[in-house]
Design a protein around this nucleic acid. Structure first.
Lengths: 255, 255
DNA sequence: CGACTACTTGAAATATTTCAAAGTGAGTGG
DNA sequence: CCACTCACTTTGAAATATTTCAAGTAGTCG
């Protein structure tokens, strides 16, 4: 039922190497040599799986590592002064999170598992050291952060200039393209997050998100069954999102 | 009248070194040794000044360098599919821009001088190389990008959860704190950007921004004279922004 | 099975936008 | 140096998308 059998053999201590991991084309730079991968591999800890709702880190936690999602999904969020949540991103298998906190040595975000999840923990000090010796790796992380910045800017554009439908459409297409990258179906997937999280992330009230889903369903654009989504008219969805009609969408927050 | 006599002797070819530059505590890591600064210095080009309205780079320009603002100010922006502008940030002296484009080797933003400006151009390939030898430098740039991500997230929070007044208040306090960092007055400064740019950046219509400025003026919180701003009741402004009443504000987009 | 949380739906309330128009200012050329 | 233009800014009134409030309906988990 759950689809996180994706990170090759599941967690449980069985030591899957980066070389073996099916996600490595997503989370590692292509150009790293085999011996270098091995070196990287040696600093990575494959930690215990997290249960739904568990935190990987919280705001003010010391920044020690970045994390690659092996299976499951995470949301990151900050808290406002009044204590309300602000969802800053979603992370799927192969994507890397935790680079907030690099600037202050304290995490500014919290990261919470949206479902059972497994991660690879990459101690940052070691990664940093390794990066001075493997320029490709240094560049990879520069690029990773640069992509995050670009994604955030795309999102800002969405938030400031686009109506609710377009935000939701873009969001769905973005997720879709991220599933595609892992070889999963572009048009049938399961949302790991709640409507509430989606609304929060997109700057919309839950009710608005809900209404848009029902409308899209009524128009025959989507078949919605709870968190299960099927895209029936991708072209319409792309139109709504102002994205090129072809398969994959605006990138919003990858890693 | 213009206040960009700040980058020590002005441009014009007179070779000001990083060591001499009054901005170096802002744009360089503290821990870089003298001989290392000299090395960094040798790869930096101090380019001709730009006139108001000139572009430093445009979307799709090849990514070759990052830029430290020496004097003046820049805005960065992207274009939507429909060709409208989306302002993504403002950059003041001592701050570094151009790291978008790192991921694709093409700039995704445009950078435009908001007034006469001078910059230090830092060729990225050389910087990258140098970073492998000077770990402090590598970390500095990691941190720079991390800070940009954090700033973007703060901004997203503002955009999705906060009413117009709070956005403007936060914006002003943010600018104020950035001026303070350069030793300038916290409560009297000149906005280098238009109301339009502010609105665009904050996800508000120009008219809304204008109305808020007039209201703040009416309440005696600000004295507004065109782009010249004086903060009369900082505490009120901080309240509006939900920021600690003390001097400096939420960081939004520094560098 | 009951209690909770998540989701949906409708109707009223509201902040912000849009449209329209007038005022201000800065820069240009006569 | 003045007049003129163009771009920016301000202000008001009407329009509107989205939120908020309220209530009902699923699901889900112990």
């Amino acid at each position: 039922m759950t689809d996180h059998a994706c990170a090759d053999r599941l967690a449980g201590g069985s030591h899957v190497t980066c070389t073996d991991c099916s996600l490595n084309p997503i989370c590692l730079p292509i150009a790293v040599r085999d011996d270098e991968i091995t070196e990287l591999d040696s600093i990575i800890k494959r930690s215990r799986p997290l249960r739904k709702g568990e935190h990987l880190f919280r705001p003010s936690d010391e920044f020690q590592a970045v994390y690659a999602v092996r299976s499951g999904a995470f949301k990151t969020y900050t808290l406002t002064e009044e204590g309300e949540e602000q969802v800053t991103g979603f992370y799927l298998p192969g994507e890397i999170l935790g680079m907030d906190g690099l600037s202050t040595n304290l995490h500014s975000n919290a990261a919470k598992a949206l479902e059972s999840a497994a991660i690879c923990e990459i101690p940052f000090s070691k990664l940093e050291l390794l990066s001075t010796r493997i320029p490709t790796l240094q560049r990879h992380f520069f690029q990773l952060m640069s992509r995050e910045i670009q994604a955030d800017q795309q999102l800002m554009l969405l938030l400031t200039k686009k109506p609710a439908d377009e935000r939701v459409a873009s969001f769905l297409l973005n997720l879709s393209s991220r599933y595609t990258r892992r070889g999963l179906s572009a048009n049938r997937f399961r949302l790991p997050m709640s409507r509430n999280d989606i609304g929060n992330f997109l700057g919309l009230a839950v009710e608005t998100v809900s209404r848009i889903f029902t409308r899209l369903q009524a128009n025959g654009v989507l078949a919605v069954d709870g968190k299960e989504i099927e895209v029936l008219k991708r072209d319409v969805l792309c139109d709504m999102a102002n994205a090129p009609i072809t398969g994959n969408a605006v990138r919003m927050r990858s890693a």
